[in-house]
């Protein structure tokens, strides 16, 4: 007479190896999750010193980033751009998904230029935010 439980465990390890198919299932699910959630954010690629703010709140993660440097240059995706290119770049980066725009501005940049960039971005983006330091 054979014990049922014992015969099962023997069947599982018939060839002496661990069954890996559940592991592959889990890894595939993780893989698909990360593929779907992967959003490749292109950073402006310039070092800026942010202005202070007390009411700063966390901004939406999946945003289009622009930077205004202390030398009054506008950056997007690692290259310097002109003011007039801003709306078309938002169109290209947004792909009809209505992404919000975040502008990283240096605190010593010209405020008039910042206002012009915001005005240009507002033509296309649902919301335009200014990145600041974390409030203490």
């Amino acid at each position: 007479m054979r014990l049922y439980g014992r015969s099962r465990s023997l069947e599982d390890q018939e060839d002496g190896s661990i069954n890996v198919s559940p592991l592959i299932d889990v890894v595939f699910i993780l893989l698909i999750f990360f593929i779907v959630s992967a959003t490749f954010v292109s950073l402006p690629g310039v070092e800026i010193s942010r202005p202070n703010a007390q009411t700063a709140s966390s901004l939406q993660k999946n945003s289009i980033l622009f930077a205004v440097s202390g030398e009054n240059q506008i950056f997007h995706g690692g290259t310097e751009i002109q003011l007039a290119e801003v709306p078309s770049l938002i169109d290209a980066a947004s792909k009809d998904r209505n992404k919000p725009v975040v502008i990283q501005t240096d605190q010593w940049a010209d405020a008039a230029l910042l206002a012009k960039v915001i005005a240009q971005a507002r033509k296309k983006a649902p919301s335009v935010s200014i990145a600041t330091r974390k409030p203490r």
Binding site: S37, A38, T39, A53, L59, K61, S63, S129, I130
Partner: peptide, 20 residues
């Protein structure tokens, strides 16, 4: 592939003000 996508998923955490 899994490790590539984990590494490539960048979470940019910005704080700031939004003028509606």
């Amino acid at each position: 592939l899994l490790i590539f996508f984990i590494v490539a998923t960048s979470f940019v955490n910005e704080v700031g003000i939004t003028s509606k």
